Amino acid sequence: MKEENGALTDVVAELERAAGDGEVEVGHLIDALDERGYGPALAVLPLIELTPLGGIPGVPTLLALTLAIIVIRLLMGYDHFWAPDWLRRRKLSSERVKKSLEWLKPISHRIDAKLHERLSRFAGPAARKAAAIVILGLLLIVPPLEVVPFATSGPMIVIAVFGLGLLYRDGLLMLLGFIGSVAAVGAGIWGFTASGG
């Protein structure tokens, strides 16, 4: 498996190639991410929720489920991703996936230009495990938040921050992820309560 220091732009391009034409199975996208490790998966998949694809009902929950399986594998110490066949066979429109990735390209260029390794002790194995536990907690609140417009974006942004922290070995981002997780949970509870859920 490649080191988790590949440029985010390269990861987006790899997913674009994997999307193909017509329809793409979730399994093909997972396999494309598997080549690059946990950091890129935890950075890119949550960002997809912020694209037009994330506005489709059920997609945030599908992303949350996929991410949860990946994070559990991370906690268990596996090098490679795994997903059940029913999830791998789930199909998405290639055109919609490509449009979402196209939307991400300028963002990925800016991120690549700004982020780098720093405070790496906060991005080490212990921080990685702690982040995985926090991410699982955030993913649990995504499905119920789907009833509140845009509410799933908060947890997904925080998960993406953790993913970028792992991708670039950026301890500052990891610390921001821990702080942001508290804010995301608070905002999610408030939004869910305010909507009458």
Rank of each mutant, 00 (worst) to 15 (best):
A64P: 03
Y78I: 01
A68D: 13
L92T: 01
L87E: 09
I70P: 07
L75E: 10
L63R: 05
P84K: 13
D112K: 08
I70V: 08
R89L: 07
K114Q: 15
L74H: 11
A64V: 08
Y78W: 11
L92K: 00
R73N: 14
L65Q: 04
E49I: 00
L87A: 08
I111P: 05
H80G: 06
S93D: 05
W82A: 08
R88L: 11
R110V: 04
P52K: 10
H80A: 06
R90M: 12
F81N: 07
I56C: 01
L45K: 01
H109F: 15
P57N: 04
L53W: 00
T51D: 06
G58E: 10
R88F: 05
E102Y: 12
T61R: 03
R110T: 08
R96I: 10
L47G: 01
A68E: 13
G77V: 08
I107A: 14
L45H: 04
E49G: 08
L47V: 07
L53K: 00
V97W: 02
V71F: 04
L74I: 02
V71T: 09
H80V: 02
D79A: 07
A113H: 12
A83G: 06
K105Y: 14
G58A: 09
A43M: 02
A64H: 03
L92Q: 01
A64R: 05
M76P: 00
L74D: 02
G58N: 03
E102S: 15
A43C: 01
S93M: 13
A64S: 11
I111Q: 14
K114V: 10
T51M: 11
I56A: 07
L62C: 02
T51L: 13
L101N: 00
I72Y: 05
K105M: 15
V71P: 02
G54H: 03
P57G: 04
L63H: 08
I111N: 10
K114C: 04
D79P: 00
S93C: 07
K99A: 12
L101P: 01
L92E: 00
D85P: 03
E102L: 11
A43H: 04
W86S: 12
W82F: 14
H80K: 03
T51H: 06
W86C: 07
A113F: 10
L101G: 02
T51A: 15
R73F: 09
A64C: 04
P52C: 14
Y78D: 12
L74E: 03
R90P: 00
L74F: 07
P84W: 12
I69F: 12
S108C: 09
V97C: 04
G77S: 11
T66Y: 05
S100K: 07
W86R: 08
I70C: 03
H109K: 15
E102W: 14
P57H: 01
D85G: 11
L62Q: 08
L75V: 05
A64T: 06
A43E: 08
K99T: 08
I70F: 02
E102H: 11
H109A: 15
E49N: 11
A68I: 01
T51C: 09
